Amino acid sequence: MKITILGTGGGARAHTAKLVELGHEVFVGTRDPEATLARTAPDIMGNAPYKEWLADRPAVTLMPFGAAAAAADELVINGIDGHNAVAALSAIGDSLAGKTLIDYAVPYIYQHESEHPWPTPWGVMPKLDPCDTDSLGERIQRALPGTRVVKSFVTQEQTTVVDPKAIGAGDHTMFVAGDHDDAKLQACELLRSYGWTDILDLGPLVCARGMEMYAHMHSAIGFGLNQGFGGHFGIKVVR
């Protein structure tokens, strides 16, 4: 299958590498491919320059966002940062029409002013916007009415999403939410190909609010486990 990943960060790289391993033809979208390939310093998260990472994966095609989205058969994964996702996706709405978009972005605002800041090992915890009464997943769906948006992957580090057996032999839970049953089935099929056996459908896309707000709890658990940024652990819903 031809599958597109939008973004070149660490999470997007994890999905890209796994999809290639599974035999898919993978297209990666970025705002400006020339600028992406020209970078020589690690990104803000410490990932190696994309050109170096891509050199070991000649089967991957790097393209502008719109062209990459258009190249997908049906499935696109959104790895664009949450603060910029709606604007970037809206600009390529025609290329995403009729396709399933799995969104794992967290709507974080970094370097914000807070009356009661939450200190973390890397500074102050970013804030969620939107939160409570809306979600990034819902905003993307409203901006792209012709696209089937599914919220998933967001409750776990992406390196674990593509390799669930790295934790607890894979015995933990992944969640999906969306307003289109056929799109959720596509997301579940992809998750099963990654190795997930416990997938919980939370229902409509409004449940993306809970998944996105869990991001803070994910960080808090990581702190409690002394894992710093990110977290090598899973969540299990015990029925």
Score class of each variant (00 low, 15 high):
residue 1 M to V: 12
residue 8 T to I: 13
residue 15 H to P: 02
residue 15 H to Q: 09
residue 18 K to P: 02
residue 21 E to S: 12
residue 23 G to N: 03
residue 23 G to M: 05
residue 25 E to C: 05
residue 28 V to F: 00
residue 28 V to W: 00
residue 30 T to R: 01
residue 31 R to Q: 12
residue 36 T to H: 03
residue 39 R to H: 10
residue 40 T to Q: 15
residue 42 P to G: 10
residue 45 M to C: 02
residue 48 A to D: 12
residue 53 W to D: 07
residue 54 L to Y: 01
residue 54 L to F: 03
residue 54 L to R: 06
residue 56 D to C: 02
residue 56 D to Q: 12
residue 59 A to L: 08
residue 63 M to V: 03
residue 64 P to W: 08
residue 64 P to G: 02
residue 64 P to S: 03
residue 64 P to Y: 06
residue 65 F to Q: 00
residue 65 F to S: 01
residue 70 A to T: 03
residue 74 E to F: 09
residue 86 V to K: 03
residue 87 A to K: 15
residue 90 S to V: 04
residue 91 A to F: 05
residue 91 A to S: 14
residue 96 L to G: 03
residue 96 L to M: 08
residue 99 K to Y: 04
residue 100 T to C: 05
residue 103 D to G: 08
residue 104 Y to H: 13
residue 104 Y to E: 10
residue 104 Y to C: 07
residue 105 A to G: 05
residue 108 Y to V: 03
residue 111 Q to C: 08
residue 112 H to V: 15
residue 120 T to W: 10
residue 120 T to H: 02
residue 122 W to T: 14
residue 129 D to E: 15
residue 137 G to P: 02
residue 137 G to M: 04
residue 139 R to W: 08
residue 140 I to Q: 02
residue 143 A to S: 11
residue 149 V to R: 04
residue 158 Q to K: 10
residue 160 T to K: 13
residue 163 D to R: 15
residue 164 P to M: 07
residue 168 G to K: 06
residue 172 H to I: 08
residue 174 M to V: 12
residue 174 M to W: 03
residue 174 M to Y: 05
residue 176 V to R: 07
residue 181 D to I: 09
residue 185 L to V: 15
residue 188 C to E: 15
residue 190 L to M: 14
residue 192 R to V: 00
residue 194 Y to T: 03
residue 200 L to A: 08
residue 205 L to S: 05
residue 212 E to F: 06
residue 215 A to I: 07
residue 217 M to N: 14
residue 220 A to C: 11
residue 221 I to Y: 13
residue 222 G to Q: 11
residue 224 G to D: 03
residue 225 L to G: 11
residue 225 L to E: 11
residue 226 N to Y: 07
residue 234 G to F: 01
residue 235 I to H: 12
